[in-house]
């Protein structure tokens, strides 16, 4: 018996990284899972893991930047699984185009960055909202990013889109509350999903770790997060335990956003005598 027995949960970007971790943490507590992203193979891999835990899994190849495909994802889920309890909008492009000066960013890359990271949340939430409103229950969980709360050099689309996700969460939460729909967002810091990242990114992170550089990466607790840190947060937010929680960003970042005034929040020790001198 699990705390999510009988629930049906859709996870976009469920083939890799945080999406896969969430899928397995939720299935272990009894949920049936629908995973949606563009590439079929990673989705099938996650589905095998879910089935190994004895739960139902459905793979729906979907490009979340296409509203028609988002509608189809919801329809297919209802047809095959009979219902939906939670939608997790997790798909996103973590390392998009960066370090390009503003004057060289093309319309196309602007739209791609905004579509994948922000519009997708709108499309999928809109697609499921009428169904949730009619049955007067449902939960939506959006995956934003710490970068949605701070600026970052030359990261126009990602930081803007993720800030948008945070506020879209609030607006949906307030507007849909009367239909008993809860909307929250998860805000990860640096989480180790490297095995799914491009080669050069993996190398850079490995080097940083080897030199103790993660401290310098603004993580006060001194190490990056594990995908399961996010998976279990999703478990709390999917379960009935969080029924009075809505519109809240849940930040899971090793203290990263709490500091920031000095690199990792550490300041030199000064005695009162010195302070008054």
């Amino acid at each position: 018996m699990g705390t999510l027995d009988g629930k049906v949960i859709i996870i976009t970007g469920g083939g890799t990284g945080l999406g896969r971790s969430m899928a397995l943490c939720l299935a272990a507590e009894g949920a049936d899972i629908v995973v949606a992203a563009r590439r079929k193979e990673p989705l099938e891999e996650t589905a095998r893991g879910i089935r190994k835990l004895g739960r139902k899994a459905l793979v729906v190849p979907t490009d979340v930047t296409d509203p028609t495909q988002c509608n189809a994802l919801i329809e297919k889920t209802l047809a095959e699984m009979g219902k939906i309890d939670v939608l997790i909008n997790n798909a996103g492009i973590v390392r998009g185009e960066r370090r390009v000066p503003l004057w060289e960013i093309t319309d196309e890359s602007w739209h791609t960055g905004i579509d994948v990271n922000l519009s997708s949340v709108f499309y999928c939430s809109r697609a499921v909202s009428k169904y949730f409103a009619d049955k007067k229950s449902g939960k939506i969980i959006n995956v934003a990013s710490g970068e949605g709360f701070r600026g970052q050099r030359d990261s126009y689309m990602y930081n803007t889109a993720k800030a948008g996700v945070v506020n879209l969460t609030r607006v949906m939460a307030m507007s849909l509350a009367e239909y008993n729909i809860r909307v929250n967002c998860i805000v990860p810091g640096f989480v180790d999903t490297f095995e799914y990242q491009p080669e050069e990114y993996q190398q850079a992170m490995a080097q940083l770790r080897a030199t103790g550089g993660t401290r310098r990466l603004f993580i006060p607790i001194g190490h990056t997060g594990k995908p399961d840190d996010i998976g279990y947060l999703a478990l709390f937010l999917c379960s009935d335990a969080s029924d009075y929680v809505t519109a809240t960003p849940f930040i899971c970042d090793g203290g990263g956003l709490t500091g920031g005034f000095a690199t990792t929040g550490y300041a030199p020790v000064v005695s009162l005598k010195e302070a008054l001198a």
Partner: peptide
């Protein structure tokens, strides 16, 4: 309080039915 929140520190989380989103 559980063992799965090692990476969560310094946070302020609301349980307020959405009040703080106003």
């Amino acid at each position: 309080a559980s063992d799965v929140t090692d990476f969560t520190t310094g946070q302020f989380m609301y349980v307020d039915g959405g009040l703080m989103a106003h």
